[in-house]
Design a protein around this nucleic acid. Structure first.
Length: 494
RNA sequence: GGCCCGGUGGUCAAGCGGUUAAGACUCCGCCCUUUCACGGCGGCAACACGGGUUCGAGUCCCGUCCGGGUCACCA
């Protein structure tokens, strides 16, 4: 069997050169891990920071793990996060196809090229079963010593085989990582990993090297779990005589000191976080800082838009150690983003949540939203905060007691009786008028504002904690409903 | 177990041989105030340990301990 050298030349000729090119290469699992999302973000940032190209590649070489509709989740998430790709399965590009299962032939050809060059060999051994405990020593593979002719004969005879990388027995291999620096390992600690599986599909490790090279990837960004296989990648690149890309290994996002974030442990994916009421921008901002931090004169800065991140991002700022995901801090970022929205945008975003419990179409949603903006950290906490507008909750007369406001049930009774009278006389139900009326009443009765406002608010809302004060709540409720509720409060006190 | 990597407050982190060891989240206190928030001010809290090198070490070297990764025909 002879190799078609022209094929390799053509493939080589297609590789774009001269610009930074990065790729996000997820395998379609059906959801986006937080760690995955962060890797995608960093990969995108490296490309955008350098004015380079960001590529999406789907790694679906594991036939047994294909999940229906899983690639859609990837497209949807990237689009939502505004991590736009310049090349990919959906938009095409100069080095298509961008789905590994469609590149199957390519891997086989390159594997044979590597065999030809003496850096790989056919292996006909039975699939290794789970080794015994403590048996860490690898047995030497007899197939490694087969002559090319012997191997070819068995292949031709239809014997099933895999292709393995031929790792040198002696010496050391050193590779460089942009974050971790130079790492040297002894070759004898490396195993002859499988390159082409029995089913003809490449392993992740092999497909990655081939694709990264053929797609002209300059910065290989991936999780640090691949750090220990990096020497083998280097040997592969060297075996082909290819230039080695810049490795960027990112430390994992942890759920606690011991475990990585994982769906299995019930840790939230990007989709889950969205469902919990987190904003995409806040998630991205938080996640960016979980493993990267700005330096120099912006070292103290935490709030970054995507564009600002792209400008500020640098490999130097990346952390070597794992980072624990902290929901409290994410929540803080979410609150920050919620507050920085324009009142109009916030009202638009909040309205569906307000409507969940406020169904009365008469009530001014914009005003309710205005009260909510500084008072919620997540949109999802809105419904229970505003439920009292529609229906006055059952509440205990004990709520009228408040030490700081100098209010007791007796005082409340007095305040409410007076308030019903003066509020009943208000002609134009505006916030200003309500405010003046009530503060005027407090002054006339020789009590501090709080002593009057407390019972009014309690009677109007029926709960101890409300968004907004007495004046605002009364105004939103309208005159009739306010008076009705205040009278109800009075009854409760009798 | 071998190999590789890491270790600054509870968490994210700055620090690059000389600092009172930043900042943020959380928590606590105070101010503001019409509840709660927002905002403002203040506070608690850290260089894993032991040896070196150096006039001087969180910063450099070695060891110990702890944690993680990897040792798949999964990615």
């Amino acid at each position: 069997m002879s190799l078609d050298m022209k094929y390799f030349e053509e493939m080589e000729a297609k590789i774009p050169k001269g610009k930074v090119r990065t790729r996000f290469a997820p395998s379609p699992t059906g959801y986006m891990h937080v760690g995955n999302l962060r890797t995608a973000l960093y990969t995108w940032l490296i490309a955008r920071n350098a004015g380079g190209t960001f590529i999406l590649r789907i790694e679906d070489t594991d036939q047994g793990r294909l999940v229906e509709g899983a690639t859609d989740v990837i497209y949807k998430t990237l689009a939502e996060c505004k991590l736009d790709h310049d090349e990919g399965p959906d938009v095409g590009g100069p080095v298509a196809p961008y789905i590994q299962s469609e590149r199957r032939d390519t891997y086989g050809k390159y594997a044979r090229l590597l065999v030809e060059r003496g850096h790989a060999y056919y292996c006909f051994c039975e699939k290794a079963e789970g080794e015994e405990e403590g048996a860490f020593q690898k047995a030497a593979d007899p197939c490694r010593e087969l002559s090319p002719a012997q191997a070819q004969a068995r292949v031709d005879a239809g014997e099933p085989y895999v292709i393995r990388q031929k790792i040198p027995r002696e010496g050391t291999t050193t590779f460089h990582d942009a974050i971790f620096g130079d790492i040297t390992v002894e070759n004898k600690t490396l195993d002859d990993q499988v390159l082409i599986k029995r089913d003809g599909m490449p392993t992740y490790n092999f497909a990655n090297v081939i694709d990264d090279h053929l797609m002209g990837i300059t910065h290989v960004v991936r999780g640090s779990e691949y750090l220990s296989s990096a020497p083998k990648y280097n040997l592969l690149y060297q075996g082909f005589g290819w230039e080695i890309p810049t490795y960027v290994h990112c430390s994992p996002v942890m759920r606690d000191g011991q475990n990585k974030m994982s769906k299995r442990h019930g840790d939230p994916s990007y989709e889950d976080l969205k469902d919990q009421g987190f904003l995409t921008e806040a998630i991205l901002n938080y996640v960016a800082l979980l493993g990267w931090s700005p330096r120099g004169d912006i070292a103290e800065r935490e709030v970054f838009s995507l564009e600002e991140l792209a400008r500020a991002f640098d490999l130097e700022g990346m952390s070597k150690s794992p980072a624990i995901f902290d929901l409290d801090k994410l929540t803080h970022f979410n609150a920050l983003y919620l507050r920085s929205m324009s009142p109009e945008d916030f009202a638009r975003a909040a309205e569906p949540y307000i409507r969940q419990t406020v169904r009365n179409g008469e009530l001014p949603v914009e005003k309710i939203a205005e009260l909510l903006q500084a008072r919620c950290e997540k949109l999802t906490e809105i419904p229970e905060k505003v439920d009292f507008f529609d229906a006055l909750p059952e509440y205990s007369a004990e709520l009228f007691t408040n030490k700081k406001s100098k209010c007791t049930p007796e005082v409340a009774k007095e305040m409410l009786s007076a308030a019903v009278v003066v509020l009943g006389a208000v002609h134009t139900w505006s916030q200003e008028n309500i405010h003046e009326t009530l503060t005027g009443l407090a002054e006339g009765m020789q009590v501090k504002n709080a002593t009057l406002m407390w019972p009014v608010r309690i009677a109007a809302a029926g709960k101890a904690v409300t968004p907004g004060g007495a004046v605002e709540i009364c105004w939103i409720l309208g005159k009739d409903e306010t008076l009705r509720r205040l009278r109800l409060g009075l009854e409760k006190l009798n």
